[in-house]
Simulated assay, not measured.
Amino acid sequence: MARWLELPSAPPEGDVLPPDLAVAAGRKTTLQFTVTYLEMTERPNHVAVHPPPRTKVALMRAHTPTLDFYRFLYNGIGEDWNWWYRRSMPDADLAALLEDERIEVFVLYVEGVPAGYFELDRREEPVIDLAYFGLLPQFVGRKLGPYMLYSALEQAWSYEPDRLTVNTNTMDHPRALPLYQKYGFQPYRQEQQTIPDPKLNGIIPG
């Protein structure tokens, strides 16, 4: 599960659990993690990946998704993996982002129920970024990830970019990095990052 980790600033400090109380309670006030940046510069030659058998799925682009729907997906998928950045965005800023036609949100439905999504950021073409990718917890482990990633790659390469990028980090699902590499992404850079724990300042429910 990838997250867009070009962090313009740390999460805002909150009043849910001040650092001194967190330390007294034996909790770390920051999170340290390693970000791996990956890329592919040629369209991979993959055999088509299909949904799991006897599973009714649909993959549809959500044109200008509502804030509530987008936050439902983002928050539900990202809570276990500390996706904090867009939780902290003001509604007006997030709405403006989602109204940009170069931000493409594709939602996976399973038996008519939203199961996950991927997001392509085309604002810096000919480079396209797979900015977000993930499944809601109840759909993890049902072999939907490979199908959704294959679909994301097909969609991205239909624009004939020069380069497709993604990043993941050590807070994400442990199978995220191997899956990206299996489908053709190659690591080109790693970096260490530290952020205030978003579960201590109330961005993510603790």
Rank of each mutant, 00 (worst) to 15 (best):
A2W: 06
W4L: 10
L5I: 08
L7Y: 11
S9K: 12
A10L: 12
A10N: 07
P11Y: 06
P12N: 06
E13L: 11
D15L: 10
D15G: 07
V16H: 14
V16K: 10
P19E: 11
D20L: 11
L21V: 09
L21Q: 14
V23L: 08
A24E: 13
A24M: 05
A25W: 04
K28L: 14
T29S: 08
T30W: 10
T30D: 14
F33I: 07
V35A: 08
L38M: 09
M40Y: 11
A48Y: 09
H50Q: 09
P52F: 00
P52S: 00
P53F: 05
P53C: 07
R54K: 03
K56C: 08
V57P: 10
A58T: 09
A58E: 03
A58Y: 01
A58W: 02
L59Y: 06
M60K: 14
R61E: 09
A62T: 01
P65E: 06
P65R: 07
L67A: 12
F69K: 03
Y70R: 05
L73N: 06
N75H: 15
I77Q: 10
G78W: 09
E79Y: 05
W81F: 15
W81I: 10
W84K: 08
W84P: 09
S88G: 04
M89D: 00
A92I: 04
D93G: 03
L97P: 00
D100Y: 01
D100P: 00
D100K: 02
R102I: 00
V105W: 00
V107F: 04
L108F: 04
V110P: 05
G112R: 14
V113G: 05
A115L: 02
F118I: 09
F118N: 06
E119A: 03
L120Q: 07
D121G: 00
E124P: 02
P126E: 09
V127A: 12
V127W: 02
Y132F: 13
F133A: 08
L136D: 09
L136R: 10
Q138M: 07
V140S: 00
K143T: 11
L144A: 11
G145C: 10
P146H: 08
Y150A: 09
Y150T: 04
Q155I: 12
A156E: 02
S158P: 01
Y159D: 03
Y159N: 10
P161R: 05
L164V: 15
T165P: 08
V166N: 06
T168V: 09
N169R: 02
T170A: 02
T170L: 01
T170M: 01
M171Q: 08
H173M: 12
P174S: 13
R175I: 05
L177F: 14
L177Q: 13
L179A: 15
Q181L: 00
Y183S: 05
G184S: 08
F185Y: 11
F185W: 08
Q186P: 05
Q186F: 04
R189N: 07
R189A: 13
Q192N: 06
I195E: 13
D197E: 04
P198G: 06
P198W: 04
P198D: 00
K199C: 14
L200H: 03
N201H: 15
N201T: 13
G202A: 07
I204C: 01
I204V: 00
P205V: 12
